[in-house]
């Protein structure tokens, strides 16, 4: 079956709404779940939780550093705080608080970061953080998760409550294709192979997983056999899945809505450089800030769309062939 027939978009939805729905559900399942927000309750889709559990919702105001510290204090006694704000504020603005009070102190805080990446859109570069994965994955003890669509974000939001330890959960603002089955199990650290292939592997994360599926569909039509793997958990990286697939295809493309520096691609490339040097192409932003625009326009402008992924696949296959000669 063609990859584009296997994965059907059941309707565009925003991943932040997946977070909101997951938060409500995990709140119903687990009375220790507490939600905190820094004056962005609507943007983070936390209203339903706040309405149903007013005693477990803490409005922190525009004071993110204090929100992270307060979350750490709550976690000490067994609460499971979900602290939500925009990805830029949840990382760069409070890096030291996350480092000391959450990661180093191993407090069970879930940092829930919306509006990540360039597809934030019209608000422009001040809000389009593309460094957050790098910042967060550098911190020991922190799990870093970047789900691909509404259903996966919802499942991840529910699942992280069961993991005892700090988590960075990254999601976005725009409506994007929702294709993960609603009942799909989310396993932290377990990559999902969406399509088996022989010629090349695309490792994609977040919104770019759909772009990778579309790219793979186009390439299939040209007779290129593409393996597509959803790296929803960037840390801990599923090294076994990465190594096995790279060994099989011998060519790698990584795709993410992030800078090359510090991103998933760099992580995979560093791992493979040590274990199995493999020709690699990066679909990511190279050392630039973003700008205002519509999400789809921005993906094209910054060469993050399915066409760019397909081009990268052709480049890396050419590299592979050149090396084999």
């Amino acid at each position: 079956m063609k990859i584009t027939e296997k994965f059907i978009n059941t309707g565009n939805k925003d991943t932040r709404s997946g977070f909101g729905a997951g938060l409500l559900e995990v709140g119903r399942e687990n009375a220790d779940v507490i939600a905190l927000c820094a004056d962005l309750t609507g943007s983070l889709k936390m209203e339903a939780f706040a309405a149903e559990f007013p005693d477990r919702f803490i409005q922190c105001g525009i004071a993110e550093a204090n929100m992270i510290g307060t979350s750490a204090g709550l976690a000490l006694s067994g609460k499971i705080p979900y602290a939500g704000t925009f990805a830029g504020f949840a990382t760069g603005r409070v890096y030291d608080q996350v480092r000391q009070s959450v990661a180093y102190s191993e407090t069970n805080v879930k940092i829930c970061a919306s509006h990540a990446g360039i597809t934030l859109g019209e608000d422009g570069a001040t809000h389009q953080i593309m460094e957050d994965i790098g910042l967060m994955r550098m911190l020991p003890n922190l799990v870093v998760i970047n789900p691909c669509d509404y259903n996966q974000t919802k499942a991840a939001t529910i699942e992280i409550a069961k993991h005892h330890g700090p988590v960075y959960l990254r999601f976005g603002r725009p409506s994007v294709p929702n294709f993960t089955p609603a009942d799909a199990k989310f396993e932290i650290g377990k990559a999902i192979t969406l399509a088996q292939g022989r010629d090349v592997t695309i490792f994609a994360t977040g919104h770019l997983v759909w772009e990778a599926i579309v790219a793979a569909g186009m390439l299939e039509d040209e007779g290129i056999s593409v393996e597509v793997i959803n790296i929803h958990t960037i840390k801990p990286l599923d090294k076994k899945a990465v190594l096995e697939s790279a060994a099989k295809t011998g060519a790698v493309v990584t795709a993410e809505e992030h800078l090359i520096a510090g991103g998933m691609g760099e992580l995979i490339a560093a791992f493979l450089a040590k274990e199995l040097p493999t020709p690699t192409e990066f679909v990511a932003v190279d050392d630039l800030f973003g700008q205002s625009g519509e999400p789809a326009e921005l993906l094209k402008e910054y060469k993050l769309s399915s066409i760019n992924i397909a081009d990268a696949v052709k480049r890396v296959i050419a590299k592979k062939l050149a090396l084999s000669k």
């Binding site: 550093a65 204090n66 750490a72 204090g73 000490l76």
Partner: peptide
């Protein structure tokens, strides 16, 4: 209970602890 050294964070942490005790 928690690491400290980088200044300014302990008062926030104590707020969280006080909230949890009240809850």
């Amino acid at each position: 209970h928690i690491a400290s050294g980088s200044l300014g964070q302990g008062l926030s942490v104590s707020c969280g602890a006080a909230l949890a005790k009240r809850a």
